[in-house]
């Protein structure tokens, strides 16, 4: 029997599920605001604004918890990419997902104590957590305090540019969410990765 690995400490699981719930709340309320209409609204506009703002603030606090946890625990090492041969590894992983998985090849980068993420996971998680989410948080706070935003940038409203950045980044992260959830079904069984994120053991 394969040895089980304890890869998801309690703090990480709490953060992960809090982040997931808050992100879904932000996604639904954000869509409701963006596509608000007099005839039909998914959630009342003023309620959606409050829910979106509160969820945004809480997800920011959770994000700092994630940064703190990664900085002061060994979990942070999983997000560090080696430079040499990384692109090659990435290609191997992509090839596995578009071909190898269907012909029952062995996964090229199996999970070990020192390698929680395959190269593609590492790229998408680093891009989401250290690039897109900070942009989303910063642009979100700018929209909560719009008086801080530069009024006009080359004839275009600063709030408009900030809004576009916020919506576009939010959209990119929601696309990531769907892909992330699907790829989580690629485990020993379709539900095994979800169970791991509940009990901590891989």
């Amino acid at each position: 029997m394969e040895q089980k690995l304890y890869l998801y400490p309690v703090w990480l699981r709490i953060w992960h599920w809090a982040n997931a719930v808050l992100f879904l709340l932000l996604l639904f309320t954000g869509l409701s605001l963006q596509y608000s209409s007099v005839e039909f609204s998914f959630i009342d506009f003023d309620l959606a604004v409050t829910m979106h703002n509160v969820s945004g603030i809480v997800i920011t606090i959770a994000y700092f918890m994630f940064l703190f946890g990664n900085r002061f625990s060994s979990n942070g090492r999983f997000y560090k990419a080696k430079r040499k041969g990384y692109i090659l590894d990435l290609m191997v992983q992509i090839k596995y997902y578009i071909y190898g998985i269907f012909v029952h090849q062995k996964t090229p980068f199996p999970v070990t104590e020192n390698r929680k993420f395959n190269p593609l996971q590492k790229l998408s998680y680093v891009a989401s957590m250290y690039f897109l989410l900070p942009i989303l948080i910063l642009s979100g706070f700018a929209l909560i305090f719009p008086e801080m935003i530069i009024k006009n940038v080359f004839g275009v409203s600063g709030i408009h540019i900030t809004g576009l950045v916020h919506i576009t980044t939010g959209f990119a992260l929601s696309v990531f969410l769907f892909i992330h959830v699907y790829f989580c079904t690629i485990g020993k069984t379709p539900l095994s990765n979800f169970k791991s994120m509940i009990n901590g053991w891989h």
Binding site: Q34, Y35, S157, I159
Partner: peptide, 16 residues
């Protein structure tokens, strides 16, 4: 509206 302002919900972009 866009030259000076931005209104959530009113300024969607068709192409986006």
């Amino acid at each position: 509206i866009l030259s000076d302002h931005y209104i959530i919900g009113a300024n969607r972009n068709y192409y986006l």
